[in-house]
């Protein structure tokens, strides 16, 4: 190859579509399937991550949880800027995040919100900054400012935005839409700086939540006879703690999954 050309290609900001090399300086997501699809091998540090969703309670925090636990174990603070509901301290303690590592910041306006996030990112004082933005709360210029501020920090910067914000251009390094399925939170990678986008990953809910029990007969319970979700419920494994206190994940059964496991070399071959 031409010497000049190879020198050019060696630059870190030149991305080659053919390069499928997995870089490993991302923050471990705790989900091997997700790590595989993120080209840095995990959440990109020092960059804004956008999670787009209209719903709450679909496991949106569960997606981040293994990384947040790691941050908290390294004695880094997790800052929640204007969360939609109150982060429930006992639940955080149960998942391995000491409540004293969580700082909540309430703001009255979008301007205050963006200012607070920017200050936190510029100071590089938190392991993760999570912020919930309303639709139209930030324009492209303001988002770009946050992205620049995030580059000064080593932690995670996550913006939760409504799903319709997906239509707007954003300078964020990683954009993912979240949508619920009966058993998992479905992640659709919209944009990934320096890598292919378009992948879909399902992060299953903790199985102790979705395992159906038979409630008492006198309760007003809707029990659909032929619900497609009901039957395979118990077959699924969800992310859970292993003996060492780390995270393990199990992929979903192939009949529900659109992407292959490592145990399917023939599909792997087709894809690559």
């Amino acid at each position: 190859m031409n010497k000049n050309l190879s020198a050019l290609l060696a630059r870190p900001d030149i991305w080659q579509a053919s390069a499928s090399s997995q870089q490993t300086h991302g923050l471990d997501t705790g989900y091997p399937a997700l790590n595989k699809d993120l080209h840095q091998g995990g959440w990109p540090p020092g960059a804004v991550i956008e999670l787009l969703s209209d719903e709450f309670g679909i496991g949106e925090l569960n997606v981040l949880l293994p990384t947040l636990v790691q941050c908290a174990r390294q004695n880094q603070k997790l800052v929640f800027v204007s969360p939609p509901y109150m982060p429930y301290a006992p639940a955080f303690r149960d998942t391995g995040i000491p409540p004293e590592q969580v700082v909540v910041i309430q703001t009255r306006s979008a301007i205050e919100q963006l200012w607070a996030v920017e200050q936190l990112l510029r100071g590089d004082v938190a392991g993760a900054v999570l912020c919930w933005l309303a639709h139209g709360a930030a324009n492209h210029h303001q988002l770009r400012k946050l992205q620049l501020a995030a580059q000064a920090s080593r932690g995670m910067a996550v913006l939760f935005r409504p799903a319709r914000s997906a239509a707007e251009a954003s300078p964020a390094a990683l954009r993912i839409t979240l949508s619920p399925t009966p058993v998992a939170c479905r992640l659709h990678i919209l944009k990934q700086r320096g890598g292919w986008a378009g992948q879909v990953v399902d992060i299953a809910y903790p199985n102790d939540l979705t395992q159906a029990q038979i409630p008492g007969a006198d309760l007003p319970v809707h029990r659909p006879v032929s619900s497609p979700a009901q039957k395979p419920l118990n077959k699924f494994m969800a992310p859970d703690f292993d003996e060492q206190g780390g995270w393990t994940t199990y992929l979903l059964d192939e009949q529900f999954d659109v992407f292959p496991d490592k145990s399917h070399p023939e599909i792997d071959n087709i894809l690559h």
Binding site: A89, P90, P99, E100, V102, V103, Q106, T107, Q119
Partner: peptide
């Protein structure tokens, strides 16, 4: 800094 700008009660921690 955040507390000064946003108000006394707007920045807090959690505890069980």
């Amino acid at each position: 800094k955040l507390r000064t700008r946003l108000g006394e009660d707007s920045v807090y921690g959690l505890d069980v």
